[in-house]
Amino acid sequence: MEFPKDLKYTKEHEWVKVEGNIATVGITDYAQDSLGDVVYVELPQEGGTVTKNEPFGVVESVKAVSDLYSPISGSVHEVNDAIIDSPEAINEDPYGDAWMIRVEIGNTNDLSDLMSSDEYQKFIEEEK
């Protein structure tokens, strides 16, 4: 399982990539693996807002449902519509093609409690 070093992670198994004032959000390799084959994703509208630690969408496999929690607050800059039609991308390329939303960061303080790759790996070891 991979956990790229240049990303930040949450306890709800999302990853965040910060570029300027834009944060890209997706779910981790570990999350997609525990869900199994993803069959459905629900994402917010472009232009809407998301709130830190609040659900912004849903992912579903055949036998499990999981809320997507936003790691940051801000407005939704871009939504990856492609994964709505082909949710399998979430299993195949969770950190690449299957990014979910890009958020205009409202408050950079939101980023301070996110985990590094190493911290996240330790976290999931303990959770198992």
Partner: peptide, 13 residues
């Protein structure tokens, strides 16, 4: 059985 293991992922996708 009549059918072998069924592809439930495809049924949902």
């Amino acid at each position: 059985t009549k059918v072998r293991r069924v592809d439930e992922t495809r049924a949902a996708r």
